[in-house]
Structures are given as C-alpha cells and as structure tokens.
Write a protein that binds this DNA or RNA. Structure first.
Length: 636
RNA sequence: GCCGGUGUAGCUCAGUGGCAGAGCAGCUGAUUCGUAAUCAGCAGGCCAGGGGUUCAAAUCCCCUCACCGGCUCCA
C-alpha cells in the first residue's frame, strides 16, 4: 500500500497510508487525542477531521482548547440554528451565518419578523438537532451545479454569493441531516458537539450591510464546548454591563442625555471636573511637544465649505443656518478654520513643522440609530491639531504623533488597536498623491514595528489615516486617536511657504487627534476604570467623615487644609453612622475616605481608608496631604 | 435612516380595562454611633407626548419622540 509522510507539531514525522484522514492520524497517535479532537490544522489551514491528509503536510490535531476550535464550534452552531429556523419557518431564506468574536449569527429573510419568544422555540429545536448527532459532511460542487441547486431551493442569496465568488474558487457545501448550506467550513464531526449554546438577540441587518439591499433578520447566539464556560461568559457579560458608561455616568452624576437634545450631551459638575483635568493635561503636554493652541469659529460661511470640499463630500452630515440671507454651516471639522489661520500670514520653511492645536467643538448629524451615550454623539470636542510641514518632514512628524498617542494612552492605561485606512470611493484628488500618502503612513508603522490592520477604502475623503481603536466594556471597538495625511486642503486653500530657494512651495498637512473626541474618550475612561478613576481624575478625591459631631470642627479644618493643598475634598457631616457614610463614598467610588473620631481629633491624625484597600490605619494630617498631592502629581 | 424591543416617582422596578404602588435616594424628627445600609414619619406622578376606542385607559388601537440592541468580524 502506498503511504504518505506528515509532519507533526513536535517535529516528528509519521507515516500514514495514502488517503488517511486527520481523524485517523489522531487515532494513530492516541485514542484519547482522537476522542478529544474537534478539527485539524493542515499547513496552517483549519479543516475537518474527516479531511484526507496530503503528503508532507504539517498537521496539528485541534482539541477543544485550541484557539481555532471555538470558531469551528460556532460555525457549526450557526448551521444547527439555521436548520432549526428552517424547520420552524420553512419559507425562510438563508443569508450568511459566520462565527464572530464572541459567538455567531445567521441572517434569514422571513415574511414575519422573529419575536423574542421565538428564540426559545428555536433553541428547543436546536437541542433536538444536537441530540440527533447528525454528521456534517463536506461536498465539493461545481459552479453551475451549485447555482442550479440553490436556485431550485429558492435560496437567492446563496446564488448571489456564488456568482460573486472568483471563477477558480473551489465551491463546497456542508450537509447534516437534510440541511444543506453553501459553506467553506470547517465544521465539527457531528451536531452532537454543540452542547452549550444560547441565542442572545434578534436584529435587523441589511443584506451585505448595504442599506439599499433588503433587510434580513439576524439571530445572534454564542456557543462554548462546556456549559460551565458558557455560564461564566453570560455572567461576565452581565458584569460588563455594570461598567457601561451610560449607567455609571448617571450613577456618578457625571453627565446626562436628555430628550430635548438627542445626541447633545450635558456635562454635570463632576463630569466637568474630569473633562477639565483632561484638557489641562492635554494643554501642558502640547506645549511641551511644540504645539501652539488656536481657536476657530463654530459657524463659517458656505463658501468656505465649498472650497474645502466638505460641501461636496460631507454635506449630509452637516447642520446649516442662514445669517443675513447668506448660507452658513456649523463646522463638522476644524480643518478649514485651521487652514485660514495658516493662510493669514506668510510662512518660511524655518517655521515648519508648524503645529496648531485646537479643542474644537464640532457638530455632525449622525443617524439617530447610531447614537450611543457619550461614545457617539452629535456635538463633540475634538482635541484637534493641524501640522503644516514640508514633504520631507512627513515621516518624522507622523512618528512623533504616534509616540504622543502612545504616551497618552499609557498614562490612562488604555489598550489600543491600530488600523491603516486607505482611499475611499468618494475620494478627492490625484490617485498618485494618495499612493504617496498611503506609503508614507505604512512606512512609519513598519519602521516602528507596530501591528496594524489594513482597512481598504475607509480613509477620509481628503487622505489616508492611521486610526487607534479602544474597546468598550462589552468588546465594541471605538475609534479614538487618528492621524490623517492631507495633500488636498493645502491645494484647495492655496497654502504656501517660502523655501530655502526663495520660491513658494506647497506644505503638507497632518490632521490628528489624540483623545479623538473628549466625549468618547471619557466614555472609554469610565468603562476602562469601571467608574473608579485614578486620583488625579476623580471628581471627589477625598471625603472627610466625622464619626460624631464632636469631631465636626476638626473635620472642617481638615477639609480646608485639603482644599488649600489643591485636593478636591468634601465633608460628609450628615447625622449617620460611619458605615453608612463609608458605603455612600464607596458607591460614589471616592478614592480616599478620611475618618475622624475622638482619637484622631486628640492626636491630630486621620484614619485613612482607600477605595480599594479598606482601612489603612491612622496618619498625621500633613502626611496624608503630602501622599495625596504626590499621587495626584504622578497621575497614578 | 432601517429592523426589533423598551418608555410608570431622581434611580431600580411591580402594576394587562375599574382608587397609581414598592424599595432605594430626598425631606423632617429621634439617635452621637469606629470602617459598605440606625429607627420613625413625611413628601414625591401630565404612567414619554399626541390622537382614538370605551361608562371607564398606565393597561387596547394609531401616530410622534426618546432610549436599548443590531445593520459584512464577508459562504
């Protein structure tokens, strides 16, 4: 009999009869591995256990614990759900059903929308399918046959998918029981593996995400190999909801959103303290980094927006007004204003790079359905900057901005993900210039060794950009910092500088924000800290808690001393027991609780309690103040 | 914007055609207390807004608004 050689993970080789499957390989290694196997990785491609091995392949048998194994499970779960839906709603047409970050979904076209009660029925049907332990089998099929097959089943979306695949693509479908779906796989051996799953929500979703296409009904679910892990996940999800900035923003009285102004946030006194701290820190760092602060108007003439290209490319997101019969627009971006400031004077190459920065309030008409607490609003302040420079300064300057982003985010303890977005469909300007700009950004990322994801077509209309994304408490990703390269605006506004040669030259502009929008950044901070801000950002840094009225006068003096030292302190002299006041301060997430009883009055000390560490014993007042001042200064 | 859901006191929620409720927060009083809730009393509402059905609507119907989840992590 002919045989083949495969390479295993430990570097050893193993001889198997020609035509052996991954499952047979697992069996030959150990029966236990065969029992635990869920899929295999052959030459870094994840495949079914039933897949035949190819000669000299590098094979890894994947068990439940393999990072790739969850995707396989969830993809199979999506098929099981689709079959359950077809059983209950025979007229439903299939869209797509992928595995996603925390679960899976499947899109269906149905005459009647799903109701929340349907989820229970579908789950029950899924359990029957799981109990059947139907094997999933993979079949290749040629294009014409596949189209004919799905067309005969009236699966028009599947037909469209096939038609859009490249001509040389290998088409496969998977079948279990009497359910069949166009699918690249891989899948688990049989439906019995899908033990721990839960359907989570129903949502409308446009076919292929395109609002001009039909709206399908999407069912989201999640699945794990073990019920205990699913239970933990669901508990974690509940826990994460407690960090939601909308909930904490209300509980900590930081801000509010009201019906009278949808998408336009109200800052309350405590939220304003955080915002001002962020701005103070920002101004200090920008002075150090060689920026000069400016401020430009919120309402500017239509003529300006026509010139900048916003009128043509961004009008549907803008608000308008009329002044003395003339058209004006409320600025959605700060750049045109900044361009006017630059153009207002002459500039020498010696002035470059010229770094203007601006905390600019912009208004954008976001679709009502996408508003989200402080994370997506219609009015927000960008910590903007426009850097005017010579082409030769681009890479150096981009690198400086990236370093600044890193410095900021490290101080706030935020993890971020980097994306490079390139030329969109509605782009302005020359393709050759775009290519240069895109290459410049890419060069810097590569030179700095930064991992990034490429996002084709997601750039701004005037230039490509590097985006920095932060995840919120339940894993949604929000763009915060961004660095955008722009060759168009200088052209539109005829910006120049006088070069060494005495001639006029065209500068290049970087648009960049670090926080992004202060509103969104605050939302991310709230979720990141679960409302327990570091001392320097805490709206109330210390509460002073006298135990009885005998300690009140001393407590008032302590509060005055704390305030004198620049610490935001409050007195809680309410006629309540100490436990009550401590509880109130804990709930408000105040970092320091300074308890004062007869003993402390007598000794001139404070009993220090911290938010995280509980009772820390007593210390002299001056010592406590020095500690807090130091900690505020260090921003820890 | 589109699909689905929700909207009752400051907050969390109960109330499914027949007198608008509870807990917490608030206010008043008593209590002066040592590290996450002292006790008692009081007050608090255009039941999101508008229209309709009905003897009677928080409850049923219609419209509007706001909020929540989602709207390619590409078979």
């Amino acid at each position: 009999m002919q045989s083949i050689n495969v390479l295993l993970d430990d570097g050893s080789r193993r001889e198997m009869p020609l035509g052996s499957t991954a499952r047979e390989l697992a069996q030959s290694i150990s029966p236990r591995l065969a029992r635990e196997a869920v899929a295999a990785k052959v030459n870094s491609q994840v495949v079914d256990l039933a897949r035949e091995l190819v000669p000299d392949a590098h094979v890894t048998i994947l068990t439940q614990d393999a990072p790739e194994a969850l995707d396989v499970l969830r993809h199979t779960a999506a098929h099981v759900m689709a079959q359950a839906v077809i059983r209950l709603f025979p007229e439903a047409k299939l869209g797509i059903g992928p595995s996603i970050k925390d679960g899976f979904y499947y899109d269906f076209a149905v005459a009647e929308t799903f109701k929340p009660e349907d989820l229970g029925r579908i789950e029950a049907e899924m359990r029957k399918i799981v109990a059947q332990k139907s094997p999933l089998t993979r079949h290749t099929i040629d294009r014409a046959e596949a189209i004919a097959m799905f067309r005969s089943q009236n699966e028009t979306f599947k037909v469209e998918l096939i038609e859009d695949l490249p001509f040389d693509a290998e088409l496969t479908y998977y079948q279990h029981d009497n359910f069949l779906d166009l699918c690249a796989g891989p899948h688990l051996p049989d439906t019995g593996y899908v033990k721990a799953f839960k359907l989570l929500s129903i949502a409308g979703a446009y076919w292929r995400g395109d609002e001009r296409r039909p709206m399908l009904q999407r069912i989201y679910g999640t699945a794990f190999y073990k019920q205990s892990v699913l239970d933990e996940y669901l508990i974690r999800l509940e826990e994460a909801k407690k960090r939601d900035h909308r909930k904490l923003g209300r509980e900590l009285d930081l801000f509010s959103l009201q019906e009278e102004a949808p998408g336009f946030p109200f800052y309350h006194p405590k939220g304003m303290i955080i915002r001002n701290e962020l701005e103070d820190f920002w101004r200090k760092e920008h002075r150090k980094a060689g920026y000069q602060e400016i401020r430009t108007p919120i309402i500017l003439s239509r003529v300006l927006w026509e010139r900048s290209g916003h009128w043509a490319h961004y009008r549907e997101n803008m608000y308008f007004t009329k002044i003395d019969e003339l058209d004006y627009a409320v600025k959605p971006m700060n750049c045109p204003g900044s361009m006017l400031v630059y153009r207002n004077g002459f500039h020498s190459y010696k002035d470059l790079p010229l770094r203007y920065c601006e905390l600019g309030l912009v208004h954008r008409h976001e679709l009502s359905g996408v508003l989200h607490g402080m994370a997506r609003v219609r009015a927000f302040t960008q910590d903007d900057s426009h850097i005017f420079m010579t082409p030769s300064q681009i890479e150096d300057e981009v690198a400086r901005v990236i370093a600044l982003v890193h410095k900021f985010y490290t101080i706030f303890g935020l993890k971020y993900r980097v994306e490079l977005s390139t030329r969109p469909e509605k782009a302005m300007g020359d393709i050759a210039v775009w290519n240069i700009a895109e290459a410049a950004l890419e060069n810097v990322l590569k030179a700095k060794g930064i991992n990034y994801k490429l996002n084709p077509g997601d750039g701004a209309f005037y230039g490509p950009k590097i985006d920095f994304h932060i995840e919120d408490s339940i894993g949604r990703s929000w763009q915060c910092a961004t660095i955008q390269l722009d060759f168009q605006m200088p052209e539109k506004f005829d910006l120049t500088y006088i070069g060494e040669d005495g001639d006029k030259h065209r500068p290049v502009v970087i648009h960049r924000v670090l926080y992004g929008a202060i509103e969104r950044f605050i939302a991310m901070l709230i979720e990141n800290f679960a409302g327990a801000f570091p001392l320097w950002l805490s709206p109330v840094q210390a509460v002073v808690l006298p135990i009885t009225d005998r300690a009140r006068a001393y407590a008032e003096r302590v509060v005055a001393e704390l305030e004198e030292a620049g610490i935001r302190a409050q007195l809680d002299a309410r006629n309540e027991k100490i436990g009550f006041k401590i509880r109130a301060a804990q709930i408000q997430k105040v970092p320091y609780m300074l308890v004062i009883g007869d003993k402390e009055v007598q000794e001139g000390t404070l009993a220090v309690r911290t938010r995280e560490g509980g009772d820390r014993g007593t210390s002299p007042v001056a010592e406590v103040i020095a500690t807090l001042v130091q900690q505020i200064k260090e921003k820890t």
